[in-house]
């Protein structure tokens, strides 16, 4: 149980982001919460590939014959980070357009204005 502490930290981070998405009223704060969730997923992927006593998967830095962590989750995390960045840029652009259209970022206000 306690040995799985990194996974629990990731789960708590995920739940914190999800709670912020449900509870917050400001669109920018919701975007920040989505970023927190994607960061927690990236952390989870990297933590899944860890092996006890493993070093970086680079022969040049690790030396010969050492035990290495799994490289594939790290490569996939690299892809996921860039995709999260592109998603965040698109999200912020949409939020800018919403603010220009409605003049506010409060989601209750936006729903009321839409009638």
């Amino acid at each position: 149980m306690i040995a799985n502490a990194p996974f629990f930290v990731v789960g708590l981070l995920f739940l914190g982001g999800l709670t912020a998405i449900f509870m917050e009223k400001n669109l920018v704060k919701i975007a920040i919460a989505i970023s927190v969730i994607s960061s927690s997923v990236n952390l989870f992927l990297v933590a899944l590939g860890y092996r006890v006593g493993g070093t970086v998967p680079i022969h040049f830095l690790a030396g010969e014959g050492t035990r290495m962590v799994l490289p594939t989750p790290q490569a996939m995390t690299l892809t996921a980070i860039v995709i999260a960045l592109a998603t965040t840029a698109l999200l912020l652009s949409l939020i800018m357009l919403v603010h220009r259209h409605y003049g506010t970022l409060d989601i209750d206000e936006i729903r009321r204005l839409r009638g």
């Binding site: 040995a3 799985n4 629990f8 990731v10 789960g11 995920f14 899944l48 799994l70 594939t72």
Partner: peptide, 20 residues
Amino acid sequence: VIGAVDGAHPFGDPGAAPMD
């Protein structure tokens, strides 16, 4: 979420990974 995290493999021992 807590249950899923608790049911994951122990940290630091991902088991056999032939591809990696």
